[in-house]
């Protein structure tokens, strides 16, 4: 039963990946515009265009190109960028050294702000502190991060000139590189921290009302002690789930912030590649992202099933 269930979910995973690859391929093929035209511009002659299309392999049928691309992916070969003329893996690697630290810094900021704030609010439930924290998180959730980013630039970079407003000097520039990531990381962290503070607070309150915590309190523990000894660990489960979601958002979903700060990150790579019709790059990078998320979901499902056998009965 259990093995059968696992096999079915595994098959589902493979089917999902296959479907994703087909959808991405077809979507990209549907995009109007021709990569060769973009490369050669307005003075290009028809024969030059044809020569470049042949060089890029665009003159072959969709089936052949799909098979080649998907086959390459299976072998771990992401192909070669049509515009930059370098392997996609190399391009992604170069972008990840910006995106990954940025995501990690803002994730740390999020945690540093959200966990204590959420716990504090929960410990003093219905006090003025709690109300104030809840109000601030309401505001934090309501502020669009790109607008917040613009305001940060206005204050810290344009008015006070404390921090660079954009661009990334590369890691060999040392501390200046880290400085360049401060404002974007703050801009990304604010709404995430607001959400996480709320999750932390409500999750703690939820666990505080569970029987075993009530028992503990009945045995004479203060609210704060009960919080520390029993509730905190259990409350972290939903927090971690949300955190996982936020991390995958930070890896792929930061196009707007990367644009505001002119950062050479992964999101901008995809954005540029779509505009330049660098089909190979878009397909491979989007496919990797989706595969990542689908696989994480799969692993989480299995983990839940291991913890809670009841879930295995369904599906």
């Amino acid at each position: 039963m259990s093995l059968l269930w696992l096999a079915r979910r595994g098959l589902g995973l493979c089917l999902a990946l296959l479907a994703a690859s087909v959808i991405i391929f077809v979507l990209m093929d549907l995009l109007p515009g021709d990569p060769a035209e973009i490369m050669l511009g307005t003075s290009a002659r028809p024969d030059t265009l044809a020569a470049l299309r042949a060089e890029m392999g665009l003159d072959r049928s969709a089936w052949v190109r799909y098979a080649e691309w998907a086959g390459g992916l299976l072998r771990g070969d992401f192909g070669k960028s049509q515009t930059y003329a370098v392997p996609v893996a190399e391009l992604v690697g170069e972008r990840l050294v910006v995106t990954l630290p940025l995501a990690l810094i803002s994730l740390c900021l999020t945690l540093i702000i959200a966990l204590p704030l959420g716990a504090w609010a929960a410990a003093r439930r219905n006090s003025t502190t709690d109300t104030a924290i809840v109000a601030i998180t309401q505001l934090g959730v309501a502020i669009p991060n790109f607008w917040f980013a613009m305001m940060l630039v206005l204050l810290f970079a344009i008015s006070w000139r404390w921090l660079p407003s954009g661009g990334f000097p590369g890691w060999d520039a040392g501390p200046r590189a880290a400085l360049a990531l401060i404002l974007p990381a703050i801009a990304l962290a604010l709404p995430q921290a607001a959400i996480l503070t709320r999750v932390m607070r409500s999750s703690l309150l939820e666990t505080l009302s569970e029987d075993y915590v009530r028992t503990a309190r009945a045995k004479g523990l203060t609210r704060g002690e009960a919080l520390r000894r029993h509730a905190f660990r259990n409350a972290l489960i939903p927090v971690l789930t949300i955190l996982g979601l936020q991390f995958s958002f930070l890896i792929a979903g930061t196009v707007v912030i990367e644009n505001v700060f002119s950062l050479p990150g992964l999101g901008r790579l995809i954005f540029q590649a779509i505009n330049q019709r660098d089909l190979v790059v878009v397909r491979s990078v989007v496919m990797v992202l989706i595969a990542f998320i689908i696989t994480v979901n799969f692993v989480v499902d299995i983990a839940y099933a291991l913890v809670d056998p009841r879930l295995r009965g369904r599906g």
Binding site: A252, G253, G267, I270, I274, V286, I293
Partner: peptide, 11 residues
């Protein structure tokens, strides 16, 4: 859900 939202919007 797995498709990055903004990228889908761009496409």
């Amino acid at each position: 859900f797995a498709f990055p939202a903004l990228i889908t919007a761009i496409m």
